[in-house]
Write a protein that binds this DNA or RNA. Structure first.
Length: 314
RNA sequence: GGCGCGGUGGCAGAGUGGUGAUGCAGCGGACUGCAAAUCCGUGUACGUGGGUUCGAUUCCCGCCCGUGCCU
């Protein structure tokens, strides 16, 4: 049994539900591939599976990192590979599910060997960028690494990364990236399933879900998070709804306003994910992809599981 | 009824006698180690009918609608 199920799709599309259904049906273990569900303090706000689902199948990599840390694709990949190995050791089918496409792809295709950039250097990059601005920062970078020409002056994240790698290794990032990625882990075959629901329905579910999160204590979670006094630049602090609810706590926005804003960012995020999955996964049929064109709910289970079972057998 | 003010793309909101800001949303796209991040692209909009003008969203008149004050 060398199969690994991989489920992707936009937020609120029903991925987690599909994952448990599959895990339950085929004796599997659900492994999280969502960058935010990895962190510890946020449970409701990050839409982690609830007790009922947790009881139906083992769930791994949920809430395993403290919010004070920063995850990364490579870090997740290492953890995921370990969990996959463990599930297999127990005779379970690994079901990897999450909305972080980059993570999913890093698992399936591997990453290029790029040395780790120290926090000191990253900090230097940030300071330098802040001091000279995007244009100048980019100009300096391009002078040393012509290939980074393709980066937009406003694309701070990538600019910082490119600069950091160059500074840390003396070699341009594009250089490192031109070497082939380490490829799929040996002995692993992926059965990919992507949910790509109609836009209107997806947005409606995003909105509804946030309202539900508030009813289930999202505000208390943010209060607890706030009490930790974390650096607002940390990934957890940027989870959807956190910035908005924090402003509410500070009295800058009413709960109503915060909710509207958070719902908006959720929809924007869902849109980005749809684009990512369509072009980075669905259009690249290297992995046989099952596309589900509607929001997933238990009623679709019998329509989807049989074809998946077929793929697992092939 | 009188006087004033205003009617700009889905919304907010500048502005100009001739090349129609901008923001948000929407839509499309990018994406190799902070990715729920970071970014890019995208609109035959000037209430209506006349007039002035080489040319009106911009100037003038009527009308409609909204708004404030007065009666």
């Amino acid at each position: 049994m060398d199969r690994v199920v991989v489920i992707g799709g936009p937020t609120a599309s029903g991925k987690s539900g599909l994952a448990v259904d599959i895990a339950e049906a085929f004796g599997g273990a659900v492994i999280n591939a969502d960058s935010m569900q990895l962190y510890h303090p946020l449970d409701v706000l990050t839409a982690r599976p609830e007790a009922e689902d947790l009881a139906r199948a083992p769930h791994r990599l949920y809430g395993v990192l403290p919010g004070s840390e920063r995850g990364s694709a490579a870090r997740w990949r290492t953890m995921a590979l370990a969990e996959i190995a463990e599930a297999r050791g127990q005779g379970r089918l690994p079901v990897v599910v999450g909305g972080t496409g980059l993570y999913l792809r890093s698992l399936m295709e591997g990453l290029c060997e790029v040395p780790i950039v120290s926090e000191e250097i990253r900090e230097m990059a940030r300071a330098r960028h802040a001091a000279q601005g995007g244009e100048a920062f980019r100009a300096d970078l391009v002078a040393r690494d012509p290939a980074s020409e393709r980066l937009n002056p406003g694309d701070t994240a990538r600019l910082l990364r490119a600069w950091g790698v160059l500074e840390a290794t003396g070699r341009p990032l594009t250089d490192w990236q031109s070497t082939a990625p380490d490829g799929p882990p040996p002995g692993m075959r992926f059965v990919v399933c992507v949910i790509d629901p109609p836009r209107a329905a997806l947005y409606a579910r995003c909105d509804k879900r946030f309202t539900l999160m508030l009813e289930r204590g999202a505000m208390d979670e943010v209060r607890a998070l706030e009490a930790l006094g974390l650096d607002p630049e940390l990934p957890v602090m940027k989870a959807l709804g956190v910035p908005e609810l924090r402003r509410c706590l500070r009295g800058e926005w009413t709960l109503e306003q915060a909710a509207v804003k958070a719902q908006q960012s959720t929809r924007n995020y869902a849109k980005r994910q749809v684009t990512w999955f369509r072009h980075q996964l669905l259009d690249k049929p290297a992995h046989g992809c099952h596309a589900v064109s509607s929001l997933y709910s238990a009623t679709l289970r019998d329509a989807i599981l049989p074809s998946l079972e077929q793929s697992l057998r092939d």
